[in-house]
Write a protein that binds this DNA or RNA. Structure first.
Lengths: 116, 116
DNA sequence: ATATCTGGCATCCTTTAGGTAACTGGTATA
DNA sequence: TATACCAGTTACCTAAAGGATGCCAGATAT
């Protein structure tokens, strides 16, 4: 009699995956930046202007992390002066389903908490 | 010609919902606690033993937040000594789809990042 | 009698996220 | 010649999250 296991991934491992995900998109700025870039802001200062209130220091740090996670692509054009362009990657689209679920849940959750 | 809008919710509002969601489940301990309670740990010390490394101070704080968000239910039995029981709510199950998506994405993301 | 368990709380400490402000070197503009 | 733009960087500061340790008061177990 074989051991029937629908999912061999242990609970601990699942929590680790979940926390990886959280790490990638958590924080005050990651999503607003992704949205801004996705909507067309590609230059550093453009993004900074789109994302209200972010400082250049934080933007710089966040963009680096998003790039490491392959959600945004940074291209340097070697003219003079060198210009830099940020775009969202195709991979970034894989976030869509998950993000949609999170928005749904959050929307519903407001009502749930408000209700007596 | 009417304005066709599939979703009237503004991007800013969607980000707010998303960040509500993140707030509810983010942090080092929220998910591990939920899992522990869901799997049957109901007494304070049981949960603390299940969730490796958590201190009573932090556990106490996190349980309060989870209770406020209606994900866990706290029942006090007024015997002597009074005992306290934590359980996950039915509402807690609404997290499932979303959490499953997040686990999937996180799992895939590891491979994505490791790949050259 | 002593130790241990219960559900926490109080105090102090460290780490991390994020904010403030100034600055850089090169280029273009008034 | 002075000013502003670009893509950031540096040093310093604050607030919040989380960790370490010790404690309580009542009850049960040894």
């Amino acid at each position: 009699m074989p051991d029937i296991q629908i999912d061999k991934t242990s609970v601990e491992q699942q929590i680790r995956y979940l926390q990886d995900t959280l790490y990638v998109i958590s924080g005050k700025w990651k999503l607003p930046i992704l949205v801004a870039v996705h909507e067309g802001s590609s230059r550093f200062r453009d993004i900074q202007r789109s994302v209200n209130g972010i400082t250049s220091k934080v933007l710089s740090k966040e963009l680096k992390e998003l790039e490491q996670n392959k959600l945004v692509v940074r291209k340097v054009y070697d003219k003079s002066p060198p210009t830099v362009e940020y775009t969202t990657s195709n991979y970034c689209d894989t976030l869509q389903k998950m993000v949609a679920e999170m928005i749904d849940w959050g929307k519903n959750h407001r009502d749930k908490i408000r209700e007596k």
